[in-house]
Design a protein around this nucleic acid. Structure first.
Length: 454
RNA sequence: GGCGCCGUACCCAAGUGGCUAAGGGAGAGGUCUGCAAAACCUUUACUCAGCGGUUCGAUUCCGCUCGGCGCCUCCA
């Protein structure tokens, strides 16, 4: 039995897809105006394990992730400057080039983290027609009102607006501490733009029945998810920050348009904590995957770190814990194929049932990792790498490498020095080899040298 | 002002109404070694922020206090 904590009910529920054997899943993707940071990537790793776990259970998963390449306003206070344009100004290239550039680096990050490429990754700019159709439908059904600044969704017309986030609208309106900008065009503070009008400085614009403008940032997820997955689909994933606004609005506009349930299971990943606060692109305190690589870390060590924390708990990031994960993963890769502790079929079967049960209970990846470490079985690691995604076999079954000649020569010199008990020389050669990035050891056969894998 | 999350050993982090509170890292001791590295073995929370309550029994449920964080504006 598979169980997920469904944000809709705030309870663990058995997962049963609409169509036997098939799962339709949508995940909020990146806004491609800058590098993804490792906090963003934590969420994509979580979503990847959801998909992999479903596949291990025999489901055929259709995984859709949007690419947000339409710029949206920085805030209501900003006049016309959006993220895509901000990035474009920063780098002196067009918004379209910015979008393609960061889309590419995003996919590159996924690859390095061994995150499976989603089945489809539709771009918002290529689905403006579908968004307009959806807004038209909402307009026909009387859920919208149009003002000079745009077409808005009237949240007061959607009775279950507060359901997902359990919002207290009165409370939201009472406080705010000055953080909420009051847009005088909105009837209710929670109403949101479906189509934005009269922002001439905005670079990306399209014609629409309401005039030239661009889509509001929630509508793309509704339009694209329903196009590729249907009016109702099984799973929608995202970060916890999306619950009160983005996902809430997605539900409202989707269900108002179709009259049927939008998503059956909502799964939300918690944040990565950087020191005292969350990592944020706007705060400039973010670390990219490339930063980690530049510091000499293996992307999969970061993946391993993430696997050790439950997706619904905050994870405190530090280089100390990344170091710990690196050493830990190195030991995982050192698991020997010989003398497997689970040599009997019965033992292997029992152990894999135990690990799968952990994984299937609300994605208990951390417990599963704990079990895999405890069993320390090559067979078991190999089997469950389908979910863990640590490239276990690839990293453990590396073909014996051919050493560069200078390295081999140093090793020979060291053997000679050791034979003469010239410890001073042999130790200095060892140091040289280590600095070249090799692991050096002594065996009865002489110096052993191998490239450090991570 | 509203909504929500969290507080487990030096660090990261699982987990459970009651058998020995996972796992990883680090530390300590040992085997091995010319010395190391690696590996292996042993070891490290009578306790789960504090105080009350429910209970035969709570770290796990409830309340309060203290502390940390997130969202309510774009945000994974």
């Amino acid at each position: 039995m598979i169980q997920f904590t469904n944000t809709l009910t705030r309870a663990k529920q058995e997962f049963i897809p609409m169509e036997p054997g098939k799962v339709k899943m949508y995940c909020c993707g990146p806004t491609v105006y800058n590098f993804a940071h490792i906090g963003n990537l934590r969420t994509y790793i979580f979503e990847d394990t959801v998909r992999r776990m479903l596949e291990m259970n025999g489901f055929e998963v259709t995984h859709v992730m949007n690419i947000t390449d339409v710029g949206h306003l920085e805030s209501d206070a900003d006049e016309g400057e959006d993220k895509m344009e901000k990035g474009a100004q920063r780098e002196g290239i067009s918004p379209w080039e910015i979008a393609r550039k960061y889309e590419e680096t995003f996919f590159n990050d996924l690859e390095r983290l061994n995150i499976k490429r989603p089945t489809r990754t539709p771009r918002a700019t290529e689905h403006v027609v579908q968004m307009i159709e959806l807004i038209k439908k909402l307009e026909e059904r009387g859920y919208t009102y149009t003002r000079p600044s745009g077409v808005y969704f009237d949240t007061s017309k959607f009775a279950t607006y507060t359901e997902l986030a359990r919002l207290d609208l009165a409370g939201l309106q009472a406080g705010g501490g000055g953080r909420v900008d009051h847009n005088p065009d909105k009837r209710h503070p929670n109403d949101f733009a479906l189509w934005v009008l009269n922002k001439p400085r905005h670079a990306m614009q399209w014609e629409s029945p309401w005039g030239r403008g661009y889509p509001g940032w929630h509508i793309e997820c509704s339009a694209m998810s329903m196009q590729y997955l249907g009016a109702t689909f099984d799973i929608h994933c995202g970060g916890v920050d999306h619950i009160p606004v983005h996902n809430t609005n997605e539900i409202a506009q989707s269900e108002a348009a179709t009259g049927c349930q939008f998503v059956r299971y909502w799964l939300h990943g918690e944040f990565l904590q950087m020191g005292e606060s969350k990592m944020a692109k706007s705060a400039d305190n973010f670390i990219t995957l490339q930063t980690l690589v530049d510091e000499g870390y293996d992307p999969l060590a970061y993946r391993y770190l993430c696997l050790q924390a439950h997706y619904r708990s905050e994870l405190k990031f530090s280089f100390e814990s990344l170091d710990a994960a690196t050493v830990g993963l190195r030991k995982v890769y050192a698991t020997k194929a010989e003398n497997d502790p689970l040599s009997s079929e019965q033992a292997f079967h029992d152990a894999s049932e135990e690990v799968l049960a952990a994984i299937n209970e609300d994605l208990g990846i951390p417990q599963a990792v704990g079990l895999l470490n405890r069993y320390s079985s090559y067979r078991l690691w190999t089997y469950f790498d389908a979910v863990m995604g640590l490239r276990f076999e690839e990293r453990t079954q590396k073909a014996p490498e051919t050493l560069p000649e200078d390295v081999a020569e140093l090793a020979r010199q060291r053997d000679a020095a050791r034979k003469e008990k010239n410890w001073l020389l042999s130790d200095s050669i060892r140091q040289q080899l280590i600095e070249l990035g090799y692991e050096v050891g002594d065996s009865p056969a002489g110096t052993t040298v191998k490239k450090r894998s991570l």
